[in-house]
């Protein structure tokens, strides 16, 4: 139970941090585009726990949950979005390209699919140096449409690098549902065509995610081979447009999330699409309320 509380605390910190960032966004304080990742907390926390000191993490434009998880603080990230010298990268990178080399994040790309081949190169450098580590590269389901995804699968398999492709499938690309634009892409078949093992995870159970990612990491290390993990996520904060169909924010604030409405508790949706709701079922709502109040107190202290 103690471990579950710790997981809940970490997820809550990422959730409330994003709710506070959303408030700043709504107030018009950012000049750079910022991509919220509400609902991505479970996979971010699980991956943060799995990463070893020498491991590398290559991120995409929607990197907020992972950067918050790896840093464990809000202030330097918020300052980075505000382009302040006190930001995590001295106000030089903003949001979409934010990195944290001290915590293994050595490249984040604002270009869809651009980071996959870079990750293959990073993993290859580790291979020739004989370093015992694994590289994780993050992409969304939209990025699997890019040729660079398949090219990188082929290269990674051919070169036998310890690289884990983590595909966050939120079924959205920009502001529309993926099926409004294209046919279904079967990532398992894509990876299977080049004999790369594939795993699919869903339901936002952070501990289950941790166990699967830890096993996948061990397997990549042992077999010196790439692996693909598709994780189903729901990017929360979508809303009904004037014409009646649901749209999601791509960048920009989400008007449907508000600190006065969603704190204390931090739950945005009462089903398995929300990792905070999932953990609240195990810990109880009172415990989640308590955790959210404690985390918010820490965040406020950090921000003052």
């Amino acid at each position: 139970m103690e471990e579950l509380e710790k997981e809940a605390e970490e997820m809550m910190r990422i959730r409330l941090s994003q709710i506070l960032i959303n408030e700043e966004y709504k107030a018009g304080r950012f000049k750079v585009p910022v991509h919220l990742a509400l609902g991505h907390e479970a996979i971010a926390v699980a991956l943060n726990w799995v990463l070893e000191d020498n491991d590398r993490l290559i991120l995409s434009h929607r990197n907020m949950a992972y950067n918050l998880a790896r840093l464990g603080k809000l202030r330097p990230i918020l300052d980075e979005y505000l382009l302040k010298l006190t930001g995590l990268s001295g106000g030089k990178l903003g949001s979409m390209n934010l990195i944290n080399p001290a915590r293994g994040i050595i490249y984040s790309s604002s270009i869809l699919g651009n980071n996959f081949p870079v990750a293959v190169g990073v993993a290859m450098a580790d291979k020739i140096s004989g370093r015992e580590c694994v590289t994780f590269v993050l992409g969304g389901d939209g990025s699997t449409e890019e040729g660079s995804f398949y090219e990188s699968l082929v290269m990674a398999k051919t070169l036998g690098v310890k690289l884990i492709f983590l595909v966050e499938n939120n079924e959205w690309s920009l502001g529309t549902h993926i099926l409004e634009r294209r046919c279904q892409i079967d990532i398992q078949k894509m990876t299977g065509s080049v004999d790369i093992p594939y795993f699919k995870i869903k339901d936002n159970h952070v501990h289950k995610y941790f166990e699967i990612l830890a096993n996948v990491r061990e397997s990549a290390l042992r077999e010196s081979n790439p692996i693909c993990v598709e994780v189903m996520v729901k990017t929360l904060g979508d809303r009904k447009a004037d014409d009646g169909h649901y749209i999601n924010y791509h960048a920009g604030p989400t008007p449907s999330v508000d600190v006065t409405k969603h704190f204390p508790g931090g739950i945005l949706r009462e089903n398995e699409e929300d990792p905070i709701f999932v953990v609240s079922r195990e810990l109880g709502k009172e415990k989640i309320l308590e955790i959210s109040r404690n985390v918010m107190k820490e965040l406020k202290r950090e921000l003052t």
Partner: peptide, 27 residues
């Protein structure tokens, strides 16, 4: 012995990205 010569795939965009990845990681 610590290096490699790779007769590579036909994927110029990814090969350029691969080179940047090598550079980022000290190779």
């Amino acid at each position: 012995p610590g290096g490699r010569i790779i007769n590579s795939t036909n994927s110029e965009n990814s090969l350029v990205g691969f080179g940047f990845g090598l550079m980022l990681n000290g190779a």
